[in-house]
Amino acid sequence: MTDTLTHLDRLEAESIHIMREVMADAAKPVMLYSVGKDSAVMLHLARKAFYPSPPPFPLLHVDTTWKFRAMYELRDRMAAESGMELIVYRNPEAKERGINPFDHGPLHTDMWKTEGLKQALDLHGFDVAFGGARRDEEKSRAKERIFSFRTATHGWDPKQQRPELWNLYNARKAKGESIRVFPISNWTELDIWQYIARENIPIVPLYFAAPRPTVTRDGLLLMVDDERFPLLPGETPVERSVRFRTLGCYPLTGAVESEATTLSEVIQEMLLTTTSERQGRIIDKDGGDASMEKKKQEGYF
């Protein structure tokens, strides 16, 4: 027997179904757009879900001012191409206090990203936010619902999460409560890459190997993306052929040495690699084993 639909077809249909379902109960939805490959796929799915209309919600980029320059470029291009409104939010307090990843460690993520996201959602009164998290990324995410409920203070209580049966989602909520919806929950990293290839989805060039100026810090290979990077006395960036498996704030995102310049080569490296995707991110490491879960309870995505 042959299935008419492949696993990618089924994942696509499921994600589109989820996005359309949100429109039934949401008063003011928004799509969190981080410019990474998962966001790129999510945006593409949204365009498919509502075609020929543009997706009926804006894109929200919670900016830290420390993203790679190439990310800002693609962000503006994709917003224009999709016909969606782009809202860029930067936590004014973090800006005023000059919070940065070099001097403030975990506070940087907390203030710009976690607090910034809460502020942006409150400011605009968004009641549903699409996010690009996947269940295969990390152990505690394997149990995350597709519709994840947050209290009025954006907290996540594992006991308050609702069972999700069949493809029936309960999106009802009280005033002040909000829902994070993860339409690509069931996609794996390989699915994402393969779908990008199949659908020809634009992604940030940083995912492909190129000679880039780098330095080594705490075992991570960091790219010196602009002049704000504080070099140590006598330190000069070394040009290496590198690429990134995930993208975030450039001073916090480790590169891997690579010669993969095409999608096929990137996928090939990914399949033959021996370390997991999130290894390149510092964020998972502070707080030990259950740090991701703790962050989620605090309101980090």
Partner: peptide, 11 residues
């Protein structure tokens, strides 16, 4: 070739 095969997989 691997990817062409993988893309046809069912779920």
């Amino acid at each position: 070739a691997y990817l062409a095969g993988h893309e046809k997989k069912s779920l």
